[in-house]
């Protein structure tokens, strides 16, 4: 089967229903759609197991923070790749900031382990079922999740800089 964005999307919608596969579009040739946290694992499992699709490679996972989207501030992006068909797709899941809980993907992809830990470290996502969800890059004593938009980038102790020059 020639995998095109359309027929894969059709297949997924047929499987999971239209209410669970929303906002599908192709920003850069990679099919992107949004689903919800109840279906994400089943969806990825389906993509993994399906004989035609063989989407068996997790390229990357990234958290994104949209403080302006009320009720769906936190976004988790999963990018998958079917090496057999050279077909990529991107799945997004939005969750509210108060409740950034997602199911873990580690049971399907071993590589998701550290990616999820990174997302936890950066954004405070909590992955239920994750074997070892602790901070990975920052020190464990850190009290906030630094990639959230409200926290500053700069080291607060730097002395040798005058901000007015830098237009930021």
């Amino acid at each position: 089967m020639e995998l095109t964005n359309e027929n894969v999307l059709g297949k997924l919608i047929a499987q999971f229903g239209e209410e669970n596969i929303v906002d599908a579009y192709n920003p850069d040739g990679i099919m992107t759609f949004t689903t919800n946290r109840e279906n994400i694992i089943a969806l990825i499992q389906y993509l993994y197991d399906d004989k035609d699709l063989q989407v068996q490679f997790l390229t990357t996972m990234a958290g994104i923070h949209f403080p302006d989207h009320k009720g769906r501030e936190m976004c988790m992006m999963y990018q998958l790749h079917s090496l057999r068909h050279n077909f990529r797709l991107r799945i997004k899941v939005f969750v509210p900031a108060e409740d950034p809980v997602l199911p873990t993907l580690t049971n399907i992809y071993a590589t998701a382990n550290w990616m999820e830990r990174e997302a936890y470290d950066f954004y405070g996502f909590i992955f239920t079922g994750h074997p070892n969800l602790i901070r990975i890059l920052n020190i464990e004593e850190m009290e906030y999740h630094p990639m959230l938009k409200q926290y500053p980038l700069e080291d607060q102790t730097r002395e040798d800089k005058i901000d007015t020059y830098f237009g930021r």
Binding site: D99, I126, T128, L133, I134
Partner: peptide
Amino acid sequence: MATDNKTADTDQLQEFRDNRD
């Protein structure tokens, strides 16, 4: 799951740390 992000976070963390230990 607790709605308060911070506490949920720390509880979870403690649990994971205990597990790891």
